[in-house]
Write a protein that binds this DNA or RNA. Structure first.
Lengths: 100, 100
DNA sequence: ACAACAGGCAAGCCATCACTTGCCTGCAAG
DNA sequence: CTTGCAGGCAAGTGATGGCTTGCCTGTTGT
């Protein structure tokens, strides 16, 4: 029951992975090389291809990114659903906005 | 701009720290020894006093916990405000509730 | 078929982190 | 005043995490 949240928070702990999520929000369904290039240009991160690949694996294990194979390309899609109910664990029910 | 979120997500990355937040939700304004005892009994965590103290320091640096000194006791209070706007960064604006 | 491209696998290195141990500071009750 | 309790300050250790390097698989194009 906490193991699910464990992967999720661990995935969000790294700033590079959060930048990847930012990139996927800006443009969904990108390949590894696209993400690699955009992180280098827009965020100034000079990381190797494998570094991003491992980050994507962590994000995928957390359920935040789903991959879709197509030929030799592998497109990565963002899934923000795990994020929605993760913070309500500590938010008291006296807050104004809740429960869709 | 990301340094603030960095402390926050790093604080949430550890399961013990999340359990501490759970305890403070269940009962606010506890001392270090109270938290230590309740983590041991309710969550089965046999951690030393300093371990919890360091975790509280991390949570305090993230702005999730504020401490209030009173005599030789130090009460720790939960502050969930940093949690509210942290996930909206990736939630697309097509969701029903947004835009402050 | 061959070369270029997208991606994966696995071992290794270095930094950070969680936790412990030991000692030291204040406050409080006998 | 002295004893005990609540907490803090290090320094040290073991483990985890992020990143690199090198090599290998599979797909696309000429």
């Amino acid at each position: 029951m906490d193991g699910v949240a464990d992967d999720l928070f661990k995935a969000l702990a790294d700033p590079t992975r959060r930048h990847i999520l930012d990139e996927l929000v800006d443009r969904d369904s990108q390949t590894l090389f696209e993400i690699c290039a955009r992180l280098a240009t827009k965020h100034g991160l000079g990381l190797s291809r494998q570094a991003i690949s491992q980050h994507l694996a962590v994000l995928e294990a957390a359920g935040l990114v789903r991959s879709r194979r197509q030929g030799r390309y592998k497109f990565h899609e963002l899934d923000t659903r795990p994020l929605e109910h993760i913070v309500t664990r500590w938010l008291r029910p006296d807050s104004p906005e809740n429960t869709p």
